[in-house]
Design a protein around this nucleic acid. Structure first.
Lengths: 343, 343
DNA sequence: TTGTAGGCGTTATCAT
DNA sequence: ATGATAACGCCTACAA
């Protein structure tokens, strides 16, 4: 194992001062051309690489952002991460990641670590069970900007990029009612989630637009586990007036519900039409997918979060912005039909 | 913006030496109980958090690994990332990520950055077009262990975790031949990829096992773009003796090929049976998915890569291991039928 | 144009 | 049990 070359080493060999080397490597104008070239030559020979850890330490800037998401293996989050990484790398920023796996303790520890690392900023989609927001105030104290993404805590004065579920839900209801459906089921998520409340409110509003009375039996919910997804669908199937259409909390819920239909010899989108909030990019190309998806554009949302974050990072450096404008961008979700996609 | 508290600040307030504070915060036994408590008290009051950038710099250790993958939005890689992150976090390591997007230049620049950051180790799945392996030698010089994952460069003396495609392919051929298929098509990827060569060799071997002559017309390839996927399938459909079964390079290829079948009023798995190498975790639950998938267990592979990497990191610290054993773990891929899964 | 010196926050090694 | 000091690698005012 060779010793890793440093500026000092280069300086020693050239019998010049370390600061001269430092300046030469940066192309500082005051350093003579000959010296600069000699320095670069030796640097190349030694395979010198600057030590970022030293630079971070000195400059109190890491050129690194943190991204905390519940689960990278979820297509929704991974495509967001993909967009964020791409954006950050174009800004010459690095990306540090953590996944909470819906565990608030792990989330907290990730955020603590990121705080200790003095990251320049953080994008986070909080876990389902996060109730303690103290850590976010901490981050504010440490002057580390935070942008929330998709899953927003109930706090004021925060920056976020999220998606308005109502627009997509209304489009879905419109679409179904136009096709003649009146018994529209909703398999919702756990009601303590804001996302579930939003879906329910929009569902109610949608039916209300057509003066269709709300039938509470048609509204079931699941904790999003497979078992409960099945149970919820079973509940709908057992109704006297079985729904002719179902809107599912997300694709995974739809998948399980559709599985159950098959088990009962029912055909998806013939016996019961399905629409689900989108996670999976694959379904739009499948035959027996839901009839339509309600898209939330995770990648776009992620990139927007990154945009906001980089504005904040830039603003922080300037120290000029006295008025803390809170960037709160809300995209409209949108229903996308799966008929005749792509080919 | 408050000033971020440091050890010095605590020391000043308590009128003790900084080293005392440092030791107290670490629970060093030589520090008196009273002092330790006083230090902790003030540290809490000031919301002191240790500055990792300083520690990294001083200790020449970052407790951070880098993960470089072609595309986070690909389910195969994102589930690997999920496994790696989970494993690393259990070892109290942080994860730095980069996605090459199949661009060797970007890949190189990511690796350079990681080298500059003095990461403790790197897991990488190289881009399709990477031909210059010099950077990996560089990393070796910097004593940064590298474990390759799934996409392995043609180098000696490397560590990797990969997947043997042959076993799954043979199972697929077995399965199809047993069902009476003799005309089995192969939609392969670009032939310069090792992954394509492996598939082809295994395909040939599989047919050979049954003394079925290779019909080169049944072997088509695509650069994995949608257009070429369609073209490849069109080619197969236009044959006089159209295949009764098709094995596809991966799920995305299968998706497009299956789309084309639908367009031609052919029914998947009735008119032509499909088996594809797995990317998408969703398909095993769908009705009109391929008949079976050949699983490569990305998460398991990723975790194994992480295991190898952490062994290397541990070994590097000890400086004892004189014999550089190269960990090269190869999983068997395995065909998984999609009939009656999960429910 | 180049050298000198000080410091970023922490910790290890002395000494007391 | 605690203090003093130096060092990690780099950068930058200031001096020359």
């Amino acid at each position: 194992m060779e010793k890793i070359p440093t500026i000092k080493e280069i300086a020693k060999r050239l019998k010049v001062n370390a600061s001269t080397v430092s300046r030469a490597l940066h192309g500082h104008p005051s350093i003579g051309l000959v010296t600069t070239m000699r320095v670069n030559k030796v640097a190349n020979e030694l395979n010198y690489e600057r030590n970022q850890t030293a630079i971070f330490f000195k400059q109190r800037k890491t050129f690194t952002i943190g991204v905390v998401l519940p689960d990278f293996s979820d297509a929704f989050f991974s495509s967001a991460l993909s967009g964020i990484e791409d954006y950050a790398s174009k800004k010459n920023y690095n990306v540090f990641v953590g996944q909470s796996l819906e565990n608030p303790d792990k989330e907290k520890s990730i955020l603590d670590t990121m705080k200790n690392h003095r990251l320049d900023g953080i994008i986070i989609s909080i876990s389902k069970n996060t109730t303690d927001y103290e850590v976010f105030n901490q981050l504010k104290k440490y002057n580390i900007p935070v942008v929330f993404f998709d899953r927003i805590p109930d706090m004021e004065d925060i920056h976020y990029s999220a998606c308005n579920l109502q627009s997509g839900m209304l489009q879905a209801v419109d679409c179904l009612v136009e096709k003649g459906h009146r018994n529209i089921g909703l398999i919702n998520g756990p009601l303590h989630l804001g996302a579930s409340k939003e879906r329910l409110a929009a569902y109610n509003k949608g039916l209300n637009n057509y003066s269709i009375a709300i039938n509470t039996q048609l509204i079931v919910s699941s904790d999003l586990s497979a078992d409960q997804n099945y149970r919820a669908m079973r509940q709908l199937l057992s109704l006297k007036e079985r729904p002719t259409a179902v809107i599912a909390f997300n694709d995974y819920v739809a998948r399980d519900a559709m599985s159950l239909m098959k088990k009962n010899d029912l055909v998806v989108n013939r016996d019961i039409s399905f629409i689900s909030f989108a996670n999976s990019p694959i379904w739009s190309f499948m035959d027996n997918s839901p009839m339509a998806s309600i898209e939330q554009f995770p990648q776009k949302q992620g990139v927007k979060a990154a945009e906001i974050l980089f504005e904040l990072i830039a603003g922080r450096n300037e120290e000029t912005s006295s008025a803390p404008a809170f960037n709160q961008v809300i995209f409209d979700s949108s229903m996308v039909s799966h008929h005749g996609k792509r080919i």
